[in-house]
Amino acid sequence: MGPVIELDGLEVRFGDRVILKKLKAGLTGRSVGLLGPNGAGKSTLINTLLGFHQPSAGTARILGRDIRTHAREVRSLIGYMPENDAFIANMSGVHFVRLMAELAGLPREHALERAHEAFFYVGLGEVRYRALGTYSLGMKQAAKLAQAIAHGPKLLFLDEPTNGLDPPARLRMIQLIQEIRDRGDLHLLLSSHLLRDVEECCDEVLILKDGNIAAFCNLEEERRSNRRFLEIETRGSINGCFLEAVEKLGCETAPGAQGRVKLVLPDGLEVRRLYEIAAEQNVQIRRLNHKRDSLEDIFLKAMEAADGRL
């Protein structure tokens, strides 16, 4: 299967400022997280994919359709949940979602039925006839999700979906997103500042910094590769001989303070060998933990890169 979103040298300028710098990547995951500090270009990337900004160079393809030449077709495949409040205050929730579904091309009877379904699905069934202006922040977020899914898109853009939500509402929103993802009917692009949200919902992550791709990884693969990552705490004469001996086995080592050592084991090496070497070198292994890089580690590493370029 081809990439869901393919960035092909995508560059966006606002006046003299280059916001996105020739981005090149193929996002294939069912659920892709978009991370980056403020001003990294996350929202600009989403807005460009939606056709709100014209690329100054390069292009992008969504499910094989070029955003420059097939903008309308591309938008018919997308559901968009924006970051900020976006609604018509004096309209009832279900009326609003129905309007949005009709604009997406659904006949009015289907749009009405889908609007009701979407409202029940996001848990707002009981308040669907209330004016949107009277909704709480959490309800407005859920209503935005309802309008994004009502027309049955193939790709869902979620821009900070848990923004301003209290913990139970956040949990409910994350569960909804996971449920949508796990049904397998559509792809997700989730932009968030919250690493935990991305970690819980996404299988691929694209990290932007200063308009460049700072990191792009498959979280599942990262998790798998990190199974060989150990942190040990040692006592005794750790004078370098132990580390040398371990490195000879093919391990990557990173000594830390107070006898702590991080090790990446090569394939096929048993942990038992470490104990044997430690015994030979008169070193005690007091603690041994299987560790894995969290998304936070990946993010921080990406942020350390000088200009954000990989």
């Binding site: 924006p82 609604f87 949005m100 604009l103 091309g105």
Partner: peptide, 10 residues
């Protein structure tokens, strides 16, 4: 800010 919702559609 409803314009982004209108224009995110075809």
């Amino acid at each position: 800010n409803a314009l982004s919702l209108y224009l995110a559609r075809p």
